[in-house]
Amino acid sequence: MKNCVIVEDEFTAQEVAKHLAVKYGDLNILGTFDNAEDALKFINKNETVDIVFLDIHLPDMSGFSFLENLTSTPKVVLVTSDKNLALTAYNFDLVVDYLVKPLQKDRFIEAINQC
């Protein structure tokens, strides 16, 4: 079973991601964070995190800044309401997929299979 972390400041979106991760992704959720700083502290200390579901619009920094400050190397699935950042996403090696909210079951499974 793979481990994942969810970084998302909208609680509704957190619930959706948690549901999909557990029910369809068969993932173990190690933590859920609503800001980048706490998430970084946790993930950088935890080499067992396999996948990070990351929102790009976080209150304290952008998801891309988060990636620049990430020292661990989990696979990253970006989850966002913004359709315009896909080009930037391709610049980051850890990013395996880019999902536009609201999350859809089938597309979510495809993303996990890239991990």
Binding site: D9, E10, T12, A13, V16, H57, S81, D82, K101, P102
Partner: peptide, 13 residues
């Protein structure tokens, strides 16, 4: 704009 961006998710949900 930031709040509107956040609200978009609930609108589509």
């Amino acid at each position: 704009a930031s709040v509107v961006h956040k609200l978009k998710n609930k609108i589509s949900m």
